[in-house]
Amino acid sequence: MKRTALILPIVVIAAAVGLSSIFIVDEREKALVLQFGQIKAVREDPGLYFKVPLIQEVVRYDDRILGLDIQPLEVTPLDDRRLVVDAFARYRISDVRRFRQAVGAQGLTLAESRIDTLLQAQTREVLGSVTSSEILSQDRAGLAARIRDAGRTQAESLGVEIIDVRLKRTDLPDQNLDATFARMRAEREREAADEVARGKEAAQRVRAQADRTRVELVSDAQRQADITRGEADAKRNAVFAEAYGADPEFFDFYRSLSAYRASLNSGNSAMVMAPDSEFFNYLKNAEPKAAAPAAAPAAPAATQ
């Protein structure tokens, strides 16, 4: 019983030591075997490996392609038109030994900070050598390739391979963007004012033309009316003259009756006239003048 009690702990300790000396490397990662901080072995192929328990440790690194969003930065192209560029990069750890020596125990945190710094510098250098029109055109893929190639050379010292760099967004700074929007708004307001002014000018022309046409039509109608009225007055005067010439006394009598009707109508003002005025001649004479004897009928013509 005592022997079993002694063997059991030894077996457990031996199993724990045996298990701690075994580690597995996945196909998605690489591993370093460290002994007191020094690199003793590099394990890049997937499989089962051994290490010295309690003395050696295993540090694993991702062997897949990793992504990094570069901090947005302002660049000044050749035409001095400042732009805010937002980019991202794809990278992978190509040399874990060099990577460990470059960044130490901080690992990806320090590595991504350095990658971000060097890509920002290359972005400023590449985009600063072209105009803003080239940056905003379809040539931006070529510019991103130049940034990638320049950053790849410097990233080799970190044990990192820059696989790709892409420009996600290229905008104006906020202050420039506000000024651009204000300029665009002012331009649209100016165009709107021009359209309104042209519309008012066209309306004024149409209104003036309509007024002119109206005046011409009214003038022509007035002229035609005056001509018609004049012709009517001429015919009326001719009728009056013919009637007056046929029987002047009857014409005077008719004109007097018309004057009596107009002047003695109810509602007219009172008239003060002398009793012997010629206006009342036809009212004072009770007896009408004797009519002229009718002409004798013509004798019938003699028959043969």
Rank of each mutant, 00 (worst) to 15 (best):
K2Q: 09
K2E: 07
R3E: 08
A5P: 10
A5L: 13
L6E: 11
I7H: 00
I10H: 08
I13H: 05
A15Y: 03
V17W: 03
V17Y: 02
S20P: 14
S21E: 05
F23E: 01
F23P: 03
F23R: 00
K30H: 05
L32G: 07
V33Q: 00
F36M: 02
F36A: 04
G37T: 14
P46K: 03
L48W: 10
L48M: 03
Y49W: 00
L54W: 15
E57P: 07
E57D: 11
V58K: 10
D62K: 06
I65P: 04
I65T: 04
I65M: 05
G67K: 04
P72F: 03
P72Q: 07
P77V: 01
P77L: 00
P77T: 01
D79K: 02
D79Y: 03
L83M: 11
L83C: 12
V84A: 08
V84N: 05
V85T: 03
D86C: 14
D86V: 08
A89P: 13
R90K: 07
R92W: 11
I93C: 14
S94D: 01
D95R: 09
D95G: 05
R98L: 05
R100N: 13
G104R: 15
G107N: 15
T109Q: 02
T109H: 06
L118S: 04
L127N: 10
T131M: 04
S133P: 07
L136C: 11
L136E: 09
Q138V: 15
R140P: 12
G142S: 10
G142M: 05
A145M: 13
R146C: 14
I147L: 01
I147K: 05
R148V: 15
D149N: 03
R152P: 04
Q154E: 04
E156K: 11
L158F: 06
G159M: 08
I162E: 12
R169Y: 08
T170Q: 08
D171E: 06
P173S: 08
D174V: 01
N176Y: 08
T180D: 14
T180E: 15
M184E: 09
A186M: 12
E187V: 10
E189P: 02
E191S: 07
A193E: 14
V196F: 13
G199Q: 00
K200D: 10
E201S: 14
A202W: 06
A203L: 13
R205A: 08
Q209S: 11
A210F: 14
D211W: 05
D211P: 02
T213A: 13
R214C: 09
R214F: 13
E216P: 00
L217N: 01
V218D: 15
V218M: 14
V218N: 15
I227F: 03
I227H: 09
R229P: 12
A234L: 06
N237A: 01
A243L: 02
G245M: 00
A246H: 14
D247I: 04
E249N: 13
E249P: 10
F251M: 07
F253I: 02
S256L: 13
S256E: 11
S256I: 14
L257Y: 11
S258G: 14
Y260V: 09
Y260H: 09
A262I: 08
N265M: 15
S266I: 12
N268E: 06
A270H: 13
V272N: 01
V272Q: 01
P275K: 12
S277N: 10
F280W: 05
F280E: 04
Y282Q: 11
K289E: 12
A290H: 04
A291W: 08
A294F: 00
P297D: 15
A298W: 09
A298Y: 08
A299N: 02
